[in-house]
């Protein structure tokens, strides 16, 4: 019994990090209809920021996290202004962004590999290998901290979206872009800010990932499949859905790993992706697509 509780706790701890990784992707898709396949490679950039800050200057990843967020947000502003804004009204915008961000992912991977090689890295603050014990149950401190910080950031985002004027503008644009524009929302600016926030969340996730997982430039291909399964299960564009999906799949994957071996654990996400697309393509919280 204690094993099952142990697995549940480990699954929940990782679920928070997955939720943060997926939240930015979901926000950007919801507002801008950008399927950002480069999101995990940008998470990787955040991880390298945290890694080198720790390695060179001994700065804790949790301290450098806001810096990673700012660097990624600035990257988002530049990318958006240079690339995504000009085609925002195109009827084929989503399709174009799939190809475009796929290309970006390869460029980022190549740039990171050139700069830092493909060596596996992990940031190792003291708590990353420490744990607390409650009876027979152990909770890895690194995962616990990462899970808590993720939850705080997601809760902060949710409250901001729910109660601030700009949050209203983002939610409105997500639900009906044309209507938002007719009511005075500058949807281009909303798109810019949302894209920057989405990438800031990628930066935060990267700083956390740097001490939870080992990473190397090409690992983003593994993560994109995981993140897409979370976003599709939750419902494209639904941050709440992404969070629920992240916790659910993370816990299920942990149990699958426990019962059938670690190799099968990752498969959980892919199976979920296929099953959702077959049975409920709109996901848990998404809207049913209209038939043409």
């Amino acid at each position: 019994m204690s094993d099952l509780i142990q697995i549940l706790i480990l699954g929940l701890a990782l679920g928070g990090v997955y939720a943060l990784m997926g939240a930015g992707l979901s926000l950007v898709f919801g507002v801008m209809r950008i399927v950002n396949l480069a999101h995990p490679s940008l998470i990787m950039l955040g991880a390298y920021v945290a890694y080198w800050a720790f390695r060179l200057y001994g700065i804790d990843p949790l301290i450098i996290l806001p810096v990673a967020m700012v660097i990624l947000a600035a990257t988002g502003v530049i990318l958006y202004k240079l690339v995504f804004e000009r085609e925002a009204r195109s009827a084929k915008y989503s399709e174009m962004t799939v190809l475009l961000t796929f290309a970006f992912a390869m460029v980022f991977e190549g740039a990171l590999a050139t700069a830092f090689t493909n060596t596996q890295r992990v940031t190792s603050p003291a708590y990353a290998t420490d744990a607390i014990f409650i009876a027979d149950i152990f909770i890895p401190l690194g995962q616990l901290y990462a899970g808590i910080v993720s939850l705080v950031l997601i809760a902060g985002l949710a409250l901001w979206l729910k109660y601030t004027r700009f949050g209203y503008a983002i939610r409105a644009t997500t639900q009906n872009r044309e209507a938002a524009e007719l009511l005075g929302v500058n949807v281009n600016f909303v798109g810019l800010v949302s894209f920057a926030i989405g990438l800031a969340l990628a930066g935060a996730a990267g700083a956390l990932v740097s001490f939870v997982f080992s990473f190397y430039p090409s690992k983003h291909w593994e993560w994109i499949a995981i993140l897409m399964s979370l976003v599709v299960l939750g419902g494209m564009g639904s941050i709440l859905g992404t969070v629920v999906a992240a916790y659910t799949l993370s816990v299920v994957a942990a149990y699958v790993g426990f019962f059938f071996g670690a190799t099968w654990s990752t498969l959980t996400f892919f199976v979920a992706l296929f099953v959702v697309l077959l049975v409920r393509p709109q996901g848990l919280f998404g809207e049913k697509p209209e038939l043409a």
């Binding site: 209203y168 939610r171 009906n176 005075g184």
Partner: peptide, 16 residues
């Protein structure tokens, strides 16, 4: 309208 916003929130958007 914004289907997933409440009536009150929709009215607030009217005065955005």
């Amino acid at each position: 309208l914004f289907p997933k916003m409440t009536v009150r929130e929709n009215l607030r958007m009217g005065g955005f």
